[in-house]
Design a protein around this nucleic acid. Structure first.
Lengths: 237, 237
DNA sequence: CGTGGCATTGATGTGGCTCAACGATAGTGG
DNA sequence: CCACTATCGTTGAGCCACATCAATGCCACG
């Protein structure tokens, strides 16, 4: 079993507060696990058995209705913590979007450990608070923004989230990045249909704000312009 | 200064883990504060100075766009914890919806206290996790449900939330309750316009699922029927 | 009895959904 | 090397749910 010393998310994940001895103890109860793109780790409504740190890859958290309508309610990147500790039930489905490498714990083991490590629990609290802020910001987008505004907001958010995936300090947003999502997933994130996503993207391209070298690549040509698009449909009002 | 012994939310708020001595210490740094309906406690984007327990009344957490569009992203009832600890900025505006009584703390004081009381912090973590689950469930509503479905979901949620405001155990949902919200606020919770809210409510009334004795009162006549409305627009499909 | 703040109701418009066809790319097997 | 198919994205035409705009109703309050 690989030690935590060489873990690529060692300094960014919740483990970052732990010293060598604590880390060794945590390592005792951890298991690495790989998921292929498309595989589901946990189902909405099922009992919560395990929690995990994301080492590599991207996962989606989604909620859905009985007739198949789906909403992606969160996205987990490397160093993010996933699963539902201190609660018996998963309220979202967790699915790998790319191939994924996880550092998993049985929920019970993890809770026992964290009970004796307040610093660790504090880290989790901070992350959860940040996630809650982010979710609430997204509620504004879902409830009140137009399709155009949603796409602009999405692209800018992606340029920020994908920038600091590599290093541990807060990095500048990139103007050029590859999306881990297909069009349908973008639609499920924004509460739109795939057709609307496609149309809005070509509109943004036509107006020169972005370029789309291929289906998964985005180049931001006019960040200022995009930023204006995030909260006013047409500027003319 | 009133002691915590007589506090009406003593057993439901985060304080419930504390013993008499700890409670006394916490009481030292707390200040009661009353807000009139409509008063704002904290503004989105401002620095986070204080956190609080809600003793009495209802508050809304909202996010908004520069042109005035608003989305209510959370509602706080008695015994709920509000404000943003462990972070420098409020990401939502917190406004009293009814007259409110709070038990407030300077954020710095509170954080110093909680650093030495892991149990308290654990309570906050649990609440935050539950709020996050709730927010994400609401994202499904905002992104994927029709106006009819939103209203039905809203009424059922209210019947649950308002039921257990009184006592400490999980109570049954009431079939009859008074709303703390006006029509505009309901619209801001559901991501709709006031006119659509009004029309959908009269539709639900006409089909016999609910009654509306006055603007602020709701009677659920057919809970089963309402529940079906929460995830299928018309049943016929 | 007027005035102002909600809520309801009606008429009309439109943004995004639905349905359908088509295009592009990648893998698969002959 | 080329059909053949599958998957994914784009584009177009038409429609409908909800927004917008406007008028009216209903209290509560001075």
């Amino acid at each position: 079993m690989t030690g935590c010393d060489h873990c690529v998310v060692r300094n960014r994940a919740i483990c970052s507060t732990l010293d060598a001895a604590e880390l060794a103890a945590l390592n005792q109860i951890s298991h690495h696990r790989d998921l292929k793109a498309g595989q589901t780790l946990a189902w909405e409504g099922d009992e919560s058995f395990q929690v995990a740190n994301v080492i590599e890859g991207v996962l989606k958290l989604s909620a859905s209705l009985s007739d198949g309508r789906e909403q992606i309610v969160g996205v987990a990147y490397p160093s993010d913590f996933i699963g539902r500790p201190y609660g018996s039930q998963n309220r979202q489905t967790i699915t790998a979007i790319t191939d994924v490498r996880l550092c998993t714990f049985r929920r019970a083991d993890f809770e026992r450990f964290s009970a004796n490590h307040p610093d660790l629990e504090h880290k989790i609290l901070q992350r959860t608070l940040t996630e809650l802020d982010r979710a609430r910001q997204w509620m504004l987008l879902l409830g009140r923004k137009s399709a155009r505004e949603k796409l602009a907001s999405f692209l800018l958010e992606m340029s920020e989230r994908l920038a600091d995936s590599g290093c541990q300090s807060r990095a500048m947003p990139t103007d050029q990045f590859g999306l881990p999502f297909g069009r349908q997933q973008i639609a499920d994130i924004l509460g739109l249909t795939i057709e609307t996503v496609s149309r809005q993207l070509t509109e943004l391209k036509k107006s020169g704000l972005i370029e789309l070298p291929d289906n998964r690549k985005v180049v931001i040509k006019d960040r200022k312009g995009l930023e204006q698009m995030t909260d006013q449909s047409g500027l003319g009002r």
